[in-house]
Design a binder for these strands. Structure first.
Length: 419
RNA sequence: GGCAGGUUGCCCGAGCGGCCAAUGGGAGCGGACUGUAAAUUCGCCGGCAUCGCCUUCGCAGGUUCGAAUCCUGCACCUGCCA
């Protein structure tokens, strides 16, 4: 049952302070462990990156995130550009300094908002359901807050209705001001509702933007040489189509501007759960092994195993935090809602196998009470638990790869979680 | 003692002859949430149940083809005047 571990040649981080070192590799799949080196510290991979969109992991102190084992946090360019403004974050000394997080940071490009405020506006981003029909009709909704064209995106601020223009160059400029260690190319995140035709056109656009991002990034890196080095990850789109995904990966892998290529890659798009492993596999198969790969927006337990086996190194997702604020908690025996009547008199911890602060000190009955009483401590305690649960799960997967017990760990964990 | 107003489903509160098992909130119950417009959101919420049937709008009578809605009496509550 053990999966033989293969030794891996070690690459040394460059003088920029950024680099990726492989440690072990599974013999039977693309799964591997390693370390991403950044100017603000290392990230041992696979790793779950906590999301703090607006420079805060909602309801939790940064110190608490560090204590529960989060290695890095990811914020988002678009919301921070709207408020407080990337110049202010820049003035504070960058994202980490601004939010009092001393470890590595990521920022997303605003590409997700092209979808969530555009075609996906007011829709649930279903990952389990088969795609509905034609997007192009759905995509023409009038009330949406984002309009895409080949040059960029026009956003309407949800806060005051003001119009804002994002382009690859603008996203790069903002992300340089935010100053995260790892930043993403500006892309269009498509949905399951899009047609093949739309996916092709959107992908062509995203690929063109990738080149523009790289060029802008190269320039900004020179201009801001006094700042810590920022690594740029290109984002692979192409939906569920193998040919599109492979071609997109190849093109990004070979793209260089002034001798500079991408430092790593993101894998994006709304993905059907059933295709997740295949898609990640196609992409990682085409991209250089030596590059770190970040799967954007994924955090269900079964998804981690599948994605890691297929070569993904890091993940970020709002789910552990959002779901916690809505009373859903992860346990080794599956997910449950702590606000149901069933938990009213349950004086046991959320998960007796959990080592988080919440499980060490509080009962389900108390958390149930906090939700019913609408006390904000509910969000804090539940977020601590969920973030710890997910961070630890990925840490455990990493340990199992190094120990050669990945297959057993996977079987044990999933067997119990989905029993 | 006089005058006026009120009593609606767990709570608050609309309705003022038929389209009313009865609008809205809240509470309660359950679900969803995957690069965060999310402390959000969606169902259910008298009973039994397949359309449908049965019992509800303080209590008791009455008018009417038909009443939560109109009339009479009773009970309780609230203002103002004594």
């Amino acid at each position: 049952m053990t999966d033989p571990v293969q030794p891996v040649e070690v690459s040394v981080p460059s003088e920029s302070g950024f680099g990726f070192t492989l440690k072990t590799r599974l013999a039977s799949s693309l799964g591997r462990t390693g370390t991403i080196h950044t100017p603000h510290g290392d990230i041992r991979t696979p790793a779950f990156i906590a999301v703090g969109t607006k420079a805060t992991v909602k309801a939790v102190l940064p110190e608490t995130m560090a204590e529960l084992g989060a290695q890095a946090v990811l914020a988002n360019a678009y919301p921070l550009y709207l408020q407080p403004g990337s110049d202010i974050v820049d003035g504070a000394g960058g994202l980490g300094a601004f939010m009092n997080w001393s470890g590595p940071t990521f920022t997303d490009s605003g590409g997700f908002q092209v979808m969530s405020l555009g075609v996906g506006f007011k829709k649930v981003l279903a990952m389990n359901t088969a795609g509905l029909g034609n997007d192009e009709v759905i995509a023409e909704g009038k009330s949406r807050l984002a309009q895409v064209d080949d040059d960029g995106v026009t956003f309407t601020s949800h806060r005051d209705g003001s119009k804002h223009r994002f382009s690859p160059e603008i996203s790069m400029r903002i992300q340089h001001e935010l100053g995260a260690d790892i930043i993403f190319a500006f892309d269009e995140c498509t949905t399951l509702m899009n047609t093949r035709g739309y996916q092709e056109r959107s992908l062509a656009r995203t690929q063109a933007w990738a080149g523009r991002c790289l060029a802008a990034h190269d320039q900004l890196t020179s201009l801001r040489a006094h700042r810590p080095y920022q690594a740029l990850f290109g984002v692979v789109q192409g939906a569920q189509y193998e040919d599109l995904r492979r071609k997109a990966s190849q093109d990004l892998a070979t793209l260089t501007i002034n001798g500079r290529g991408f430092d790593g890659y993101g894998i994006g798009g709304a993905l059907e759960k059933e295709n997740l492993g295949a898609i990640v596999g196609w992409v990682c198969d085409e991209l250089p092994e030596s590059a770190p790969k970040h799967l954007l927006g994924i955090s269900e337990p079964d998804d981690f195993f599948v994605a890691i086996e297929n070569g993904a190194d890091t993940f970020d997702c709002v789910s552990p935090s959002r779901v916690a604020r809505n009373a859903a908690l992860y346990t080794r025996d599956g997910r449950f809602n702590v606000n149901t009547a069933q938990q009213r008199r349950n004086f046991t911890p959320v998960d007796s196998d959990c080592d988080c602060y919440t499980c060490a000190n509080y009962t389900r009955a108390y958390l149930h009470h906090l939700f019913k009483a609408k006390e904000m401590l509910a969000s804090t305690l539940c977020t601590i638990h969920n973030e710890r649960f997910i961070v630890r799960l990925v840490d455990d997967i990493r340990a199992s790869i190094d120990a050669g017990t990945f297959a057993e760990f996977k079987q044990d964990f999933l067997g119990r979680y989905y029993a």
